[in-house]
Design a protein around this nucleic acid. Sequence first.
DNA 1: TTCGCTCGTGAATACGTATGCATCTCATGA
DNA 2: TCATGAGATGCATACGTATTCACGAGCGAA
Lengths: 332, 332
Amino acid sequence: MGITSHDVARLAGVSQPTVSRALRDDPRVSQATREKVKRAAQALNYVPSEAGRTLSTRATRRVGVIVTDLTNPFYPHVIAPLHDELSSLGYRMMLITERSDEAVAEEKLLDQSMDGVVLATATTDSRLPAQLERRGMPYVFLNRDTGRAGDFASVVDNEGGGRLVARELVALGHRRIAGVFGAANTTTGRERELGFRLALAEAGVGLPESRVVRGAFEYDTGYRALPALLEADEAPTAVFCGNDVVAIGVLNAALAAGVKVPDDLTVIGFDDLPMASWEVFRLTTVRHDLRELSRQAARLLVRRIAKDVDPAGERLVLPTEFVPRATHARAR
Amino acid sequence: MGITSHDVARLAGVSQPTVSRALRDDPRVSQATREKVKRAAQALNYVPSEAGRTLSTRATRRVGVIVTDLTNPFYPHVIAPLHDELSSLGYRMMLITERSDEAVAEEKLLDQSMDGVVLATATTDSRLPAQLERRGMPYVFLNRDTGRAGDFASVVDNEGGGRLVARELVALGHRRIAGVFGAANTTTGRERELGFRLALAEAGVGLPESRVVRGAFEYDTGYRALPALLEADEAPTAVFCGNDVVAIGVLNAALAAGVKVPDDLTVIGFDDLPMASWEVFRLTTVRHDLRELSRQAARLLVRRIAKDVDPAGERLVLPTEFVPRATHARAR
DNA sequence: TTCGCTCGTGAATACGTATGCATCTCATGA
DNA sequence: TCATGAGATGCATACGTATTCACGAGCGAA
C-alpha cells in the first residue's frame, strides 16, 4: 500500500540508508546518486512516513495548541497566525479544544505525539502547566499566563492598557464608571482590571463593586451584564469591557435596551479585532498586535524545544495603544 | 527520558507484550496480571507512545482538516463540532490551513500521518481530491464538494435554500433583485445561485448580470459589492447574499452608505450563524444545521476509513429553512 | 609499492508498540 | 495415568526511518 524508502532504494539500485540520506541532502552522498534517488522517489511518488521518522528521531515536528472555545471570535485571530508561523518554522499544528476534563487533554499531550504545547486559554488555577513541567514537555503561554515567575509567555501589557482606558474616561469627564471584566482566574482579566482600577484611583474616581461584573470573555457576558448595570441606582455613563467580544455583547444589549451609544453610554473594548471596526460597531478599543503576539509565542516555543532559552523564564510583553472610534463621548 | 512499555514490564515483572495487552484490556490476560500491570503503569505515569503504535498498527487515529481561512467567522462554527465529534469517535484533529500552494498540503497529507482528511474549502477545480484518491487516502467533503458523482460529502440543500429566498422575495413584491453570490468555483456558490435563479425564472422575474456580483465568501465581498450595485441604473430593492458573512458585509456597507435596511433595501443571508441574530444585524437568512453538517461529515469519514461505506459514493444532504428576522420587507 | 586518508555506500541496529506463534501450566475427562 | 485442551504468557518479529559503524575503492605521499 504505502511506498517506503525500501521501494525507492530497490528502484534506484541503492540501499535504504542511502535513500534516506540522499533525500535529505546529506553531503556525504554523491551528486550522481542523489539525483538517481530523487528521480526514483519522484517516479514512485514517495513521501517519507512521518511515524517512522518520529520513532527514529524522537521528534515529531508537531505542536499542540490548546484552546477552550474556538467559536469565540478572538481565537481564530490568534490561531491563524500561530499556524502560519509554526508552519514556516517547520512545525505542524494540532488543535486541541477541551472544555471538558483536563485529564483527557493531559493524556493526549503526554503521548510523545508532539514536541511542544501552546496554552492559549490557561487559567491561574490550572494544574496542566505543572503536569507538563513534570514530564519535561516544553510549553508556552499565549495571551494569558499564570502570573508566576519562570513562565515562558507571549503576552500583552494588559495593565498598561487598562490604565490607558481609565485615563481617557476620566479626561472625558466620566465619574460613574462600570467595568465588565474577564474571569478572575485569568491574568488578562485581572491585569486589565488592576491597571484600570489603579489609574482610576490615581484620579480619585471610585469603582464600586455594584458597577463591576466579571465573567468569561464571551458575547453573552457583555450582553447580560448591561441590563444588570442599568438597574443599579446610578446607571454608569461609561463601561470598560474586558475585551472586544464582551464589548460587542454590551453594544448589542444597548441596542436592545434603547440605550444610545455613545450619547447615553460610552463603551470601550480591548484587542481591536477586525470586527471592532465594522460600521455597525465602530468600537473604541485598545489595540495590540495580535499577529505578533502569536508569532512571538510560536518562536518562543520553538526556541524552548531547542533548549535555546533563558532557564529562568521569558515573558515577552507587547505594548498597547488606545484606538478612538465612535463608541466614546464626553460624559453628559 | 520517555517511559516505555518495557519499563512498565520490568516493574510489573512481566513481558512487554503482556503490558501492551493488559493496558488495552485484552481478554487473554488474567485479572491479576492486568491489575499488576496497570498499577505499574500508573506508578510510572506511563503513556503509550503514539508513534510506536502508529508504526505497528498502521493507523494514526488522526484526521486532517483543510480550511483556507480560519478567521472567516463561518469556519470556527464547523471546526468546533467537527473536533468534538471526531474526538468522541476516538480521532484527533490536525488543522491544516493552506491558502498557498496545494503541493505543500499534498506533501503533508500523504506522509501517512493521518488516516483521513476533511476538505472544508474545496473548489470545483481543485486537483487535491484526485491526488488523495490516487494514494488511497480516505477523504470527505464538508459543506462544499466538487459536484461530481462518487463524492463522499456532507452538504446542504443549497439549491433548495436559494429557491426559498427567491420565492420570499417575489412574494414580497420585489422585482429589481440583486445577488452577491459565492465564487463560481464553489458548489455552494453555484447551487445557491442556481436555485435562486430557477425560482425567480419560474416567477417571471429576471436577474440581469448587471445586478450580480460573485466573490469569495468574505466580509469584504459584501462590503464592496453594495456600492457597485447601488451605482447601477436601477438600484435593487433586495439583495440575496451567498452567505451570512457576505450579508453582514452588505449590512455594514449599507450603514456606511446611508441606505436603510429593510426600508430601502432587503438583505438576505445564508447559514444562520449565531452572529446573524445579534441585535445589530437581526439578519433574515436561511438556516441549516451547521453542527449536524459537521458531525455527519466526521461520521462519514470515520466510516470511510473503516471501509464501511457505499463504494459508489455517499452524499448526505441537510434541509434548509427560511428564517425571517428584521432585514426584509415588502418592496416599496 | 605501500601506507594512510578521504569519499561514498551498505550492513546492522535502534526507536516503541502490537501481534502471530510457540510454550508452559493446570485442570478435566476417559 | 495420560492425553487433551483451555488459558496465560513470552519470544520473535514487523512497522519505516535515521544513524552508527564497517567496508571498499580510489588516490596521493612517502
